[in-house]
Amino acid sequence: MMKERILQIGKTGEESLPAITTMAGLQAWEVEYLGRKSELNTLLKSLRDLSPEEKKIVGPLGNSTKQKLIALFDTKKKKLLENSIDWQAEGVDITAPGAKVAIGHLNPLTQIEHEIQDIFTSMGFVVADGPEVETEHYNFDALNFPKDHPSRDMQDTFWIKPDKKAKERYLPRTHTSGVQVRYMEAHKPPLRIIVPGKVFRNEATDASHEHTFHQFECLMVDVEGQVTVATFKYVAETFFSAFFGEKVTVRLRPSFFPFTEPSFEFDISCIICGAHGCATCKHSGWLEIGGAGMVNQRVFEAAGYKRGQYQGFAWGFGMARLAMMKYKIADIRLLMSGDLRFIRQF
């Protein structure tokens, strides 16, 4: 008897729901089928009077019917709420522009600098810094550029007009390498540093030359035998592979810098053509990147280290070149043009 009644309540409850169109109607329905005084509830309360056998059958049925009706009620309620809003009137023109929020852009050189820094610091390198107006001592003398020697012509140098009272000769640094000696004077190996910075050369500007450019220097020093030419190749290849996101190999060619011995020019395998030869690499498969070498023992001596005790490599390259390669910028002068039409592309 009871079982049939429960089934009946479930059925009529379910069947009467679709016809309801208002919240008030739904509330009345809720009172009728799920309220405290509803028939279903009353029936469920009277279960305790039944025999155990009957309880076993009617109990679960009553509960599942109640759960079913609750679920139906929730769904219907949601639907009614949704329908209560005039969506067309509420609507916006989704193609109209969003409220303007200004975003700024970092110069591509800065972005490249940050990328490079992140790779090197992840390998345990420290970012070091030095003055842009450097003394002749740190820029040249300490780096084994003898006075009155043509090696000084390798870097066209601006000089600060000497003041009668000034003791030292000053110059806008021609490279970041002056920081090498400054840093080594203050620290003992093992050391791993990188030095990003602005440098200056007294040369006319064109699409690929600037009198002001941003250089990146890397110095790694340890006791003799630890940091070798082979280590340099490894660190350089690791860095460039990380920077370009593909396997890059490094080629060394003999060169000369007063502050390194041996000295190299280094090239990387062309990332444009995969070293097969293209216009960018002039069909050689290699791109010229920068200069490098094993720190000259005379530089260690200038920093106060004992000759032959330490060994390490130093290398430097222009960040503009990497920025131009990465973003395919045709004219180096754009980088410092201060033109927002350029900056805002990055």
Partner: peptide, 17 residues
């Protein structure tokens, strides 16, 4: 120099200051 193969350094782990 092309016959010098890249070799990873064996160095103590020092956090980058």
């Amino acid at each position: 120099y092309e016959h010098i193969v890249a070799v990873a350094p064996l160095l103590p782990l020092i956090p980058s200051m």
